[in-house]
Design a protein around this nucleic acid. Structure first.
Length: 727
DNA sequence: GTTCTTCTCCTTTTT
DNA sequence: GGAGAAGAAC
C-alpha cells in the first residue's frame, strides 16, 4: 500500500488519508481523480478500518463502477466480495429488493423502461380526458421524473408547484401513475432512488441499521447528483459521517436531467466541519490546452474556484487550432484529412476523438470517415437493452417468469403478429379489471369462455400453452435453452428472419448476444436486473478506431487528439437550452466546452462553419461566443471562413444577431420552401403542370384539392394541387 | 386487423 | 429529409 501512497502528490495524498469526517475532493480535469478514489478505497480496506461490506461506493455509470472494482482488486491483489459498489440506481435497487414489502412492492418487482412507462401513463391520461396532442405523455413523464429527482412523492407536492401542465392536473396524474406502478408491481428508474429514500425516512430501525453499517461512503461525480441522491446519501452518512465526495463543479453538465450543482457548492454547509481538498495539478494536457480551458471556464460565475496548472514538465505543445470552414461537409473533410495525416505519422486512431454537441452532427463525420476508409466507433446511441429486439426478448422472459407482469405481456402479445390487436387488448383489459387478475390470467378466461374467434383464438391458445411449456423448460433445462425456445416457438426469430430490412440480421445477432449474456447468470431474476440497470452496448469496442461521440458521453475520457466541431451560436451554446434556462444554461454549455477541451492531451481542434444544414434547409451560422473567450495566445486561427464575428453580426437579417429561435427558424424555413402559389383558376384535366419533385406532367383527373397526374418521368401520382404549377 | 398513406414535428444531452 | 403517429384503404 505504501507503494500506492508514495505515487501520489501531496494533495492527492491528503485526499486519501483524510479518513475521519466529511471530505470534499474538488478534482479538476486530469488531476488523477480515479487514482485518488481507488487508492482511498483500498486504503480503508487495507488499514482494517472497515470490512468490504461496510463501505458504500457510488458512481454514476456502470463503467466507472466496473473500473473502480477492478482497480481496487488490483491494489489489494485479490477480488473483493460483498462490496456495496455500484451506480446509484443499482445500489438503490439492491436495497429495495431486500425491503420491497415495506413500500408496497414484491421483491421481484420489475424495473420499467421508457416504453413501459408511457404505456402505463397514457391510458391514465386518456381516462382523465386529456387531449394527448396538446399534452403529450412524454412531457408529463418528464415532469414526474423531475419531481422524483427532487425526492417528491405526490403527497409532498404543493399545488403551487403544479400549475403549468394541463391546468394543474399533473400531480393527480402522478399519484395515479404511482398507484398503477404498485398495482403492476413495478418501479421506474426514478422510483429506485425515491423509494429507497422513502424507505429510510419511514423506517427508523432500518435506517439505523444501515447507518451503523456504512462506516465509509465514497461518492464519485458528486456534481451530477440530484436531490434524492443527495438525501439518500445524507441519511446513510448521518451516523459515522465519513462521507467523501469527489467531483468538479466545472464539469457539471447534467442539470437537464435533474442534477443540481448546488449539492457540491453547498457541501461545507451540509456537512459541518468538512475538509476540502483541491486537486489542481493536471497530468493530462499541454499548456496551451490548459490555458484555453482555464480562460474559458473563468467566464462562469458561481464556481468554487480552481486553477489547473501543469503537474509535470511538458513540452511546449501545439496551440489549440481554431478553424473556420464553409459547411459541415468541409468540416468533416478537414477532420478526415487531419486524421489521415496523423495516422501517416504513426498516431493511433484510438487516441483520436470527435466530440459533438448534438447527435445529428455525427452523420457528416461518419460519411467522411467511411469514404476515407478510417475505422471509427460511435459511442452512445442506442444502448443494447434499448433496442426493440432486446426489449421484446426480455419481455418474453419477464412474462414467463412473472405471470403477473402485465406490461411485458402486453408488449409481446402481438409481437410477432398474432391477430391480437388493439380491439382484443381492450377487451382483455376490461376482463382483467373486472376479475382483478393479471392480463395473462384474463386471457386464459377469455379463451375458456369462447371470447376469441378464428385465428386470434388459435394463436392465443398457442401462446398461453407456450408459456406453460417455457416455464417447465426454465425449470428443467435452465435459462438459456428456455430463452431459445421462447424466441423460436413464439415465432419471434422467424419474424426477423423473414424481415428483409437491412437491420434484421443485426437484430438476430443481438439476440444471440443476449443469450450469451444470460448464460452468465444462474437465475433469470438476476439477469433481468442486470439488463435494465447495467447492460451496455460494447460492440466494436476493440480495434484501433477513431471515437465519435457527444460531449456528454466524453466526460471522464481522454484522448491524444480531440476534434471539437460545430462551435457556432445556436448549436453550441445550444439555442434551445438557452431559451429554456437562460444564463444558467449558458454556464452549463460553457462547462460542456470546458469538458471537451480538457479531454485532449496534445491536440485540440476547434472548428466552426459558415452554413449548416438543418433538417432540409441551410442555416447561416456565426462562430460561437466560446471561441471569442479563448485567449489569443493559446490558439491559432485558420481556414477561409475565419469570419469576423462583427461582420457576421452586421449582416442582418440573414445572419441575425442571436441565432434565430426555433420559431424564427421555422418561419424562415417556410418562407424559403413554401411552394409558389398558383396563379389563375383551378387546374383542369389535360393541363400541363410542373412539380418540384416529379417534374412535368399532364393532369388526368382532379378531386377537390388533389390531382392525378401522369408525369413524364415519374409516372402516375396523386399530389396536392398546391404543389404544382401550370405551365 | 393489417398495411399503406399522410401529416406533424422535429434536432440536446441519458444513468 | 426522416421518423413516428394517426387516419384511410385493403
Amino acid at each position: 500500500m505504501s507503494d500506492h501512497l508514495a505515487r501520489l502528490n501531496p494533495e492527492q495524498r491528503r485526499a486519501v488519508e483524510t479518513l475521519e469526517g466529511p471530505l470534499l475532493v474538488l478534482a479538476g480535469a486530469g488531476t488523477g481523480k480515479t487514482r485518488v478514489l481507488t487508492t482511498r478505497f483500498a486504503h480503508i480496506l487495507l488499514s482494517g478500518r472497515a470490512a468490504p461490506w461496510q463501505v458504500l461506493a457510488v458512481t454514476f455509470t456502470n463503467k466507472a463502477a466496473r473500473e473502480m472494482r477492478e482497480r481496487v482488486a488490483a491494489m489489494l491483489g485479490r477480488p473483493v466480495e460483498g462490496l456495496w459498489l455500484g451506480t446509484f440506481h443499482a445500489l438503490a435497487a439492491r436495497m429495495l429488493r431486500r425491503h420491497a414489502g415495506l413500500i408496497g412492492l414484491k421483491p421481484d418487482f420489475s424495473i420499467l423502461d421508457t416504453d413501459d412507462q408511457i404505456r402505463l401513463l397514457k391510458p391514465l391520461m386518456q381516462q382523465a380526458g386529456l387531449d394527448l396532442q396538446r399534452f403529450p405523455p412524454p412531457v408529463l413523464l418528464a415532469r414526474i421524473q423531475r419531481w422524483k429527482d427532487r425526492g417528491l412523492t405526490p403527497q409532498r407536492i404543493t399545488p403551487a408547484e403544479d400549475t403549468d401542465f394541463a391546468r394543474g392536473r399533473a400531480r393527480a396524474l402522478y399519484a395515479a401513475y404511482q398507484e398503477r406502478l404498485t398495482e403492476v408491481n413495478a418501479a421506474d428508474f426514478g422510483d429506485l432512488l425515491l423509494h429507497a429514500t422513502e424507505l429510510l425516512r419511514k423506517e427508523p430501525d432500518l435506517l439505523a441499521q444501515y447507518q451503523e453499517n456504512f462506516r465509509y461512503l465514497l461518492v464519485d461525480e458528486y456534481q451530477d447528483t440530484n436531490l434524492v441522491q443527495y438525501l439518500w446519501l445524507r441519511l446513510l452518512a448521518q451516523k459515522h459521517r465519513n462521507i467523501c465526495c469527489v467531483g468538479d463543479d466545472d464539469q457539471s453538465i447534467y442539470s437537464w436531467r435533474g442534477a443540481e450543482v448546488e449539492n457540491i457548492l453547498r457541501f461545507e454547509q451540509d456537512f459541518p466541519g468538512a475538509s476540502v481538498v483541491r486537486l489542481e495539478a493536471n497530468y493530462r494536457s499541454t499548456a496551451p490546452i490548459l490555458a484555453a480551458a482555464a480562460a474559458l471556464i473563468a467566464h462562469n460565475a458561481g464556481r468554487l474556484g480552481k486553477t489547473l496548472h501543469p503537474g509535470r514538465e511538458m513540452p511546449a505543445g501545439e496551440k489549440v487550432a481554431v478553424i473556420g470552414l464553409q459547411d459541415s461537409e468541409e468540416e468533416a473533410r478537414m477532420a478526415g484529412q487531419r486524421i489521415e495525416a496523423l495516422r501517416a505519422e504513426g498516431h493511433r486512431l484510438s487516441g483520436i476523438a470527435i466530440l459533438v454537441r448534438a447527435g445529428f452532427q455525427t452523420r457528416a463525420f461518419e460519411e467522411r470517415l467511411l469514404a476515407f476508409g478510417i475505422p471509427y466507433r460511435m459511442v452512445g446511441g442506442l444502448r443494447f437493452y434499448e433496442r426493440a429486439e432486446i426489449r421484446d426478448a426480455v419481455a418474453y422472459l419477464r412474462a414467463t417468469v412473472r405471470p403477473g407482469d402485465d406490461l411485458a405481456f402486453e408488449r409481446i402479445l402481438n409481437v410477432p403478429k398474432r391477430g391480437l390487436g388493439e380491439g382484443f387488448l381492450r377487451r382483455l383489459h376490461e376482463q382483467a379489471a373486472s376479475d382483478a387478475v393479471p392480463l395473462a390470467a384474463a386471457a386464459g378466461r377469455l379463451l375458456a369462455e369462447g371470447g376469441a374467434k378464428g385465428r386470434a383464438r388459435e394463436s392465443l391458445a398457442a401462446l398461453l400453452d407456450n408459456f406453460v411449456g417455457w416455464r417447465a423448460a426454465l425449470a428443467s433445462e435452465g435459462p438459456v435453452p428456455a430463452l431459445a425456445r421462447m424466441l423460436e416457438e413464439s415465432g419471434y426469430v422467424a419474424m426477423w428472419r423473414e424481415d428483409r430490412s437491412p437491420e434484421a440480421p443485426g437484430r438476430l445477432e443481438n439476440l444471440k448476444e443476449l443469450a450469451r449474456a444470460l448464460a452468465e447468470f444462474e437465475t433469470v431474476e438476476g439477469f433481468l436486473d442486470h439488463v435494465s440497470l447495467v447492460m451496455e452496448n460494447d460492440e466494436q469496442a476493440e480495434g484501433d478506431r477513431v471515437s465519435l461521440m457527444t460531449l456528454h458521453a466524453a466526460k471522464g475520457l481522454e484522448f491524444d487528439t480531440v476534434f471539437l466541431p460545430g462551435w457556432e451560436e445556436g448549436l453550441f451554446p445550444n439555442q434551445r437550452a438557452l431559451e429554456e434556462s437562460g444564463a444558467k444554461a449558458l454556464e452549463e454549455e460553457r462547462r460542456l466546452a470546458y469538458v471537451g477541451l480538457t479531454r485532449a492531451r496534445n491536440r485540440a481542434i476547434v472548428s466552426h462553419v459558415a452554413r449548416r444544414q438543418f433538417y432540409s434547409g441551410w442555416q447561416g451560422a456565426i462562430p460561437s461566443r466560446f471561441i471569442a473567450e479563448l485567449p489569443e495566445e493559446a490558439i491559432e486561427r485558420s481556414g477561409q471562413a475565419t469570419f469576423e464575428r462583427q461582420r457576421m453580426l452586421a449582416a442582418q437579417p440573414f445572419f441575425s444577431a442571436t441565432f434565430p429561435s426555433s420559431l424564427k427558424v421555422l418561419a424562415a424555413r417556410d418562407a424559403w420552401t413554401e411552394p409558389k402559389r398558383r396563379r389563375g383558376g383551378p387546374i383542369g384535366i389535360g393541363q400541363r403542370v410542373f412539380h418540384q419533385k416529379f417534374g412535368y406532367g399532364t393532369v388526368t383527373a382532379s378531386d377537390e384539392d388533389r390531382l392525378d397526374i401522369a408525369f413524364d418521368k415519374a409516372g402516375a401520382k396523386r399530389v396536392l394541387e398546391r404543389f404544382v404549377e401550370p405551365v
